[in-house]
Each structure stands twice: as structure tokens, then as C-alpha cells.
Design a protein around this nucleic acid. Structure first.
Lengths: 188, 188, 188, 188
DNA sequence: GATGAATGAGGTTTCATTCAT
DNA sequence: TATGAATGAAACCTCATTCAT
């Protein structure tokens, strides 16, 4: 297993997994994932030790991709509200561009299949995003709420925003903006 | 003349389903559910036509239980903020008292196993709660957000509150209060 | 089990069995048979020791009913061809009048569920029919064929006639007649 | 590169199916069929999509085997009676050589598990046999019987012949001959 | 390394039969 | 006696994983 002969096949398998899990849930058969990736059933297991490993690596990959994007679009020198807004929009854009990835990421997050080790590795990649959210957390802390309150609320309110946008895509920009303001009021 | 179908066994099966699904997800085997309920494998199917039916009835039962509680603790004549706070606390208390039921209810809600018919039946039981949330939606509407924004946000922020409380149960009361205020700022 | 409280229920069960087996084959569930007969699932087993017993008794009943009819319409003093023709028409009329009974009787006959004991009991009821057929068998014997040849051929050719009549019911009379003549040529 | 699906295993499964169905009827469990074929339970389903498919393919295979044999032993240039006799003996030889195949073929034929599509495919293989039987049907037609009368009668009388031969195998040749003559008288 | 046939444990569901009421 | 809930052994089928090629 050591060195993967073809990183493309690995990627194809992860992408196929996203599509299959989106369609059928976490019980999507490995055989379907493999065949959608265009490889043989058994090949999947030369890239991933077992289904659990595939799921954990997929989770990590999705988190890393997202954090890379968030960090790329983040100006670390800007003021807190500006940075918060940047994160807000970056995430929403990603989630709307790749709704299946977001849905699968969420399913994996809530399942009990993702090892705490994997969760830690994912968290370690948050970079400058974490810094901004922690700064935001301090505001909340003044009100007597734990520091995580801010970031958790952001995730939660983005969830809400996405659902609304999914129903009225033509109002996307306005909904993103108004929902952000609502969120900002909440954490201030 | 014959042994009558016992409501206790039905209840035992639904409760066992909650525990098993909490532990293993929606793919929890019917055999495990039956055995945890203390009945034979086949007995489950005298109470529910098939696994799907069990899941749908469970969803309905959980929703009804919750709505009954929310409505019982709701004063329909009180002002909007008061009623909103009543719903907020009632729900949190239920969710904290029965974390497994809440988790299972959520999983069922997100799955594609619950028939729209079942969802409608559940919605029909919301009673005065629905009235309060719709009134709250009108506020949001003034800001240009859809009416659902308010109720969705409530759910989302309660989610956040519950996570925090789970981590610091001794601060429960304060966290509930502060999170409510944050939520209230968001929807005003 | 000794004395049946209600012969009507027994009859209802046997009739229901005919209909269910006609529809679903010998694997028709006892529960469906019982419910079509308008009695409880368990009641079936107070009338028949088990499914096998039900099937054996049904076979016997059908054979007896048929033989009674054949014998009733048979004039034992008539010539051989006349008697043969009487049997031929009596049977065809019964089979066309009760196609389900005939189909079920055939299925039971071919299955390995009917005990040889049961088959013997059925054969014992053939009465004057047997006499006519055995007389007919003697003709065949002259040609070097076993005595059973005649009766077996009759059954086989009636089978053929019924299929043809099922497809062209309006030509029933003619088909019955011509097929009989063909059969008669065969055994002469 | 991988192990290829082996025609031998497929054949072994079909043969095992014949034996099991002969012994226990169409409800013969797939697990017994697989184990008699010397493969694992699941392997059966790599060769046949499901039990129904297995049964349909088995039916087709049996019909094709029979028709190939009948056609191989048939001289299309011979006179009608000669050809009819050839078919008569070919079939009887096959049926006596493989009594289980014949019994299973009959059971499948009468069941409602064989798709009309499958029946059509089987009929398409009848070749020169069909021609001879249809020619024979024309004789019957002169007597006012439908064309199928001849072929149906042949099947029916062969059925009779086989039963007799099964009881007195030592007289096989004579019984085959005499029964054929009886049949021929019937259809002339 | 890649393939896909082979495996068999395990999942859902059916059903003949028993037995408490 | 009549009832129908309860039982659990099978039945059919799926699927993660292994391994011969």
C-alpha cells in the first residue's frame, strides 16, 4: 500500500465516494464507489485499508480542501468583522458550489465512524481561520459564553443560510448578506 | 379471546429502536432492536409491517411527544418574546433530558426514509408552537429574510447551545439564557 | 381434534385452500387460507394437524367429489363405448365447471406431499368408473399395452381437450366430441 | 487478469438446481443448490441475478438441450409419419435418460415464474421439430380440431408412455412402439 | 499493481406452529 | 373451541473483504 501507484485513482475513488454517499448515505457499497470511479472492486482496497479508512480519509480531504480555500481568501491583517465576513462568504460559496461535498462532510461529521484522531488532524489544518474565530470567541466570552460559541454559531447560521438559498437561488446575494448580519448581531 | 397486542411491547420496541439507532445509526439491525426490547425477532413485524414503517412511526412518535411538551408549557396569550423563550427552554429541556431521542429524531429527519405523508402528519401536531414561530418569522420578513429564517435559526442555535451544555453541564442555566439572548438578537 | 365442532368451517378452509393454491401454488401460506376462510390463523390447526394434513385431506376430498359425480352420471349397464363417453363428458364438465379445483388437484397429484396412503384411499373411491376403465384396459391389453394405458390416456387426452376448450370456449361441444373420437381411436 | 467466471460452475449450479428441484420442488432453497454445486451461498448470485433468473435460465437451457437433440435426430426430408416417429422416440429417449430434467422442465413450464420472454426464446429454438408438428396439425385440422391438438396430444401420450415405461422398464421398446401407434391413430 | 470471482456472515422478512387468553 | 400474538428457523439477497490470476 505504501506508495500509491496512481494518485489519480485515489482521487477518483474519493470523488466517487462523495457522489455515492450523497445519493445513498454512508451505507453506499464500496463496489458502487469503485465502479463509479472506473476501477475494479478490489482496487479500492489497495488505496484504502478498508471502508472505514476510506471514510476517514475522505473526511480529512474535504476539511483540508475547505480550509485551504477559506485561508486563501482571508486577509489576516483586516479587522475582525471583515475577516469574519470573508470566512462567511468563502464557506458559503464553497458549500453552494459543492453541495454534495458539504452534505457528505456533514454526514461524516455526525457519524461515529470518524476517529477522534482524524477530527484532530482536520482541526489542525484550520490555520488563520481558527485565529479569526478564536478572536471572535473572545467577544462572546465577555458575555459569559464559551469561546466556541462564536464558531459553532457561524456554522449553524450558515447551515440555515444555505437551506434558504437552496430554495430561492435567485436571492442568493441578499440572503447571504442579511443572514450574515443576523449572525453578527448574535455574536456581538 | 387471544393474547392481545400489548402497547407495552410496542413502546419497548420503539424505545429499543432509539437506543440502537443512537448507537449504530439507521442501519441498526431489526434483530438487535427486537432483542433489546425483549421480544423475538419475528415479533417486531407483528407490530410494524417492516423496518421502514417502524422508522416512520418512531419519527412520528418522537415529534408528537416533543410537540405535546412544547405546547403544554406554552402560554398562547403571552407576548412574543415570552412565548419564544418558553419554546426555547422547553425544547432544550427535552433535548437535554432525552439526548438520544433528539439525535435519533434528527437522523430520521435528515434521512430519505421518512415519507412526506409522515412529515405532514408530524407538522400537523405542532399546534400553538407553529403560531408563535410564524409570528416570529414576520419580524425576519421585515428585514428581507424568508419567514422560515426565524424557526430555522432557533433550531440551529439550540443545536449550538446543546453542544455547549453537553460540555459544561454545570453552567446549563446560564448557557441556555445567554444563547437565547444571542438568538433573539439575531432574529430581531 | 376428534369430532369437529363445525363441519362448515372445515369446508370453508378446504375451499379457501383451493382458491389460494390456485393463485399462489402449494406454498400458499396457511394464514392466507385461514383468513380467506374467515377463521383465525390458529383455528386451521384445530381442523388439520398441520399443513401437510390439510393438503392430503384436500386431495382426497377433491378426488371423492369427482368420483361421486362420475359414478352418478354413469350407467353401469350400458355398452363400453357409451360408458367411456359418459365418463369422458362427466369429467370434462366438472373440470370446466371448477377449473381451480382441477388445477389444484393436479398440483397435489404431482407433488411429493401426498402420501401413498392417501393416493390409495382416493383410488378406492373410483367405484364403477374403475370397472369401465378396467374393461377398456383389456382392449389395450390385446395390443400388448398394460391395462392402465387406457385410463392414463383418457386423462391425458382430456387434459389436451380442456386446454383447447379454454382457448375456444364457443367450440366446446365440437371439441369435446372430436377429442373423444381421437381418444377412442387411440385405445381401440 | 482476475479469476474468470467459470462456465463449469454455472453448469454445476444448473445441474444442482435440477436435482434439488426434482427433490423438493421449485421452493428448493438457493443455499442447498449452491452447496450441492460445491460453491458458497453467495456465489450463486454472481452467476444469476436472483432465484428467478436462475429458474428462467434453467428452463431455457433444458429446452435448448432437448430441441438440439430432437433436431439432430430428425430427417427433414422424410415422410410425415417417419418424422413424427423420430420426434416421438428422440423425446422419449431423452426423457427416460434424464427423468429429473424432464420433471423439472415440466414444473417450470407450469409455474408462473417463467417470463413470456423466456418462453418465446425457448420456442424460437424448436427448428425443424416445429415444422413437423405443424404439418401434423394440419391433419387434425381436417377433422375440425385446432392445429395444436396434434402436438399437445403427442406430449400427453408421451407422458403416458413414460409412466408405463417407468413401471416396466424391461418392456421399454415395445411400449414405446405400441404407444406411438395409439397416438398415431388418434391424430389421423 | 490491478482485477473481479469467491466467500460467508449478516440483514430483512416470511411462515408453520404453539400457546396464553 | 376459537383466537391471534409470539416464536425462531429458514429463505433470499447484499456486501466488505480476500485472493487466484
Amino acid at each position: 500500500m505504501a506508495r500509491m501507484r496512481s494518485p489519480e485513482k485515489r482521487k477518483a475513488l474519493l470523488e466517487a465516494a462523495v457522489l455515492e454517499i450523497d445519493a445513498s448515505g454512508l451505507s453506499a457499497p464500496t463496489s458502487r464507489i469503485a465502479s463509479r470511479a472506473g476501477v475494479a472492486e478490489g482496487t479500492l482496497f489497495t488505496y484504502f485499508a478498508n471502508k472505514d479508512a476510506l471514510l476517514n480519509e475522505l473526511y480529512l480531504e474535504l476539511k483540508i480542501e475547505l480550509y485551504q480555500r477559506l485561508n486563501a481568501e482571508l486577509d489576516p491583517k483586516a479587522g475582525l468583522k471583515v475577516r469574519t465576513r470573508q470566512i462567511w462568504f468563502s464557506f458559503l460559496n464553497w458549500a453552494i458550489e459543492y453541495p454534495q461535498k458539504r452534505k457528505v462532510s456533514l454526514q461524516l461529521h455526525m457519524s461515529n465512524l470518524i476517529a477522534s484522531n482524524t477530527r484532530d488532524q482536520a482541526a489542525a489544518k484550520s490555520g488563520a481561520v481558527a485565529a479569526a474565530l478564536s478572536e471572535l470567541g473572545e467577544c462572546a466570552a465577555k458575555r459569559g459564553l464559551p469561546a466556541e460559541f462564536a464558531s459553532s454559531s457561524m456554522g449553524a447560521m450558515q447551515e440555515v443560510a444555505m437551506d434558504l438559498i437552496a430554495k430561492q437561488p435567485e436571492r442568493r446575494e441578499q440572503l447571504e448578506r442579511e443572514a450574515f448580519e443576523a449572525f453578527w448581531r448574535a455574536v456581538q
